[in-house]
Design a protein around this nucleic acid. Structure first.
Lengths: 142, 142
DNA sequence: AATTAATATGCAATGTTGTTGCATTTAAAC
DNA sequence: GTTTAAATGCAACAACATTGCATATTAATT
């Protein structure tokens, strides 16, 4: 199955309409090995893509479970494509994220699940995010 | 020992000069049960506190290990006072954070340490951040 | 294939968060 | 008290993100 068909199917499956911008944004995210902010996506999208439409696209993607926000200590929101099929109701992205102190990229470590913790009384956790900082594979000294 | 003296000592111990703004900012953070952004601190500070000075204060506090950034999926930077004495060189805040989906406050769970994970080859972690999402103690239904 | 209704888009304007440069003031060392 | 390095406050600016509204487009219906 061609890649474009897969993108279209993803949109349909999440109840989203087919548009050129949406397919382009989804493709950029699906092809990126690391999480991207809106500003970082812009140069990767077709030249005249509207900035506001981009932000609205990211919002609806997030709401429909197509992408997820990645936690960070920085001041911008970054997104990554959900690795397995999440929905608006349930996110199954319980993997660890890794931020490289050198290249600043944030990778999804899909094979590493977030370990549970025991909480104090009367705190109940529904979601968990885990971010590691260090030097990534690409930036390791040879 | 009075609270103001303790604040002054904290500043001195981290090699920071005594100023009215710094004592005020440190006090606000020390007294807050949850992490605060710059914008959230403003109304809690003396009326004419300069916004730019506030941001610069937060920056120098962070650099000297007096406060730490709290990870979040949002687009603002939030800070919390370091619970134990960290320095510019070493941060010892390996505790879990908890964000309430109802009141949106982020709490430091100082008693819960972040569990370690096993990483893929060639990834090396130096820092770890763990954020839980759920309903906090205050927002639990009775 | 045309019609229609709901949704997505693109523009203008605006808001929020955070930063930089520079002149002035102040803390603390002497 | 004098000195000096650092902090402050103002103006201007930059990046990120949102809102309202008119227009264009999708996809369902005939």
């Amino acid at each position: 199955m061609p890649a474009t068909d897969r993108l279209s199917q993803s949109l349909t499956r999440h109840g989203l309409r087919q548009t050129a911008v949406r397919r382009a944004v989804l493709q950029v995210l699906a092809e990126s090995p690391y999480a991207l902010s809106g500003g970082e996506m812009e140069p990767l999208l077709p030249p005249d893509t509207d900035r506001i439409t981009l932000y609205r696209t990211l919002k609806s993607f997030e709401e429909s479970g197509l992408i997820h926000r990645v936690i960070d200590t920085s001041d911008v929101v970054r997104y990554a494509a959900c690795s397995i099929e999440c929905s608006a109701d349930a996110h199954f992205d319980n993997h660890v994220h890794f931020k490289c102190t050198n290249c600043l990229h944030i990778y999804c470590l899909n094979q590493v699940t977030i370990p549970a913790v025991t909480l104090p009384a009367k705190f109940e956790a529904l979601t968990r995010d885990y971010l590691l900082g260090g030097v990534c594979r690409e930036c390791q000294p040879a």
